[in-house]
Design a protein around this nucleic acid. Structure first.
Lengths: 136, 136
DNA sequence: CCAGATACCTTGTCGCGCAAGGTATCTGGT
DNA sequence: ACCAGATACCTTGCGCGACAAGGTATCTGG
């Protein structure tokens, strides 16, 4: 198994607060819900990619805030494919280890536009709430 | 095996579009995951509120993007209370119909700061991805 | 007098994220 | 020659939050 441990981002100090050690992970998880779809589609708009590539790519975006785990990414790609938003093509290009490349479809781009609008609205809404705090 | 779907057979009225009317709701739901907590805590930082008040208040924020349903809000408030991030007080103030007011605690403010940082990171990460699209 | 707003609550279902487990190939170090 | 670790794909099972739906009780306007 190549499950490179869950070491990743276990926050350092545990000051004994009510929120357990996994609290940060839980938050990240809940907040990131749905963003993977947006991220994947937007990346695929720039250029076609294969799964593992997306994995590594998103791992580095921002401070890893958009990191997607294997158990999330592959099922997501399958869902998007089933929904006709992306298409998959196995490609060998001289190697024995094939890669599955994904391309975004017109339907996928339309979906992306919708998702993006939704995201923007959410961000704007949150901003109006959070900005209010700073004025206090 | 095969990318079989059985999905998208949600509604009877099949107008042919891949993204049905429920798709938007699903998206909104997934994306809004976790934001309710942020929204509630930030509102409570400004002033103490009671549940139903929060319900109506968030319903109007933005374009309703941050709307929270009863089935979401009340359990959330209870979770936050259990975690010691807010405190609840029944208040009657001359009426027979009592209200349960919530106040944010110091622990809650610390939690809010963390959540907020997480949110900001996420927004920044997404922005860098989405901005790239516009430059194409 | 009663429909609708106010005000609280709970149970059940759905779907995503992910830990954990798997298969198979290639590469570098010893 | 060997094997750990990276590459590259995949799946099942569990946890948990959002919400529809259903409930109780009080107040108000027509």
């Amino acid at each position: 198994m190549a499950r490179r441990a869950g070491i990743s981002a276990d926050q350092p100090d545990d000051t004994g607060d009510t929120t357990g050690p996994t609290a940060l992970a839980r938050l990240r998880r809940e907040l990131a819900r749905g963003t993977a779809e947006l991220a994947v589609l937007s990346v695929l708009t720039s250029s076609r990619r294969y799964g593992y590539e997306l994995l590594k790519l998103l791992e580095q975006t921002g401070t890893g805030v958009l990191e997607v785990k294997e158990g999330t990414l592959y099922p997501l790609l399958h869902r998007l494919e089933d929904a006709g938003q992306i298409t998959a093509t196995w490609e060998v290009e001289g190697r024995t280890r094939p890669r599955k490349y994904y391309d975004i479809t017109p339907a996928g781009q339309a979906h992306l536009a919708m998702l993006r609008a939704e995201w923007t609205g959410l961000v704007d809404g949150m901003r109006s709430l959070l900005d209010a705090l700073d004025r206090v």
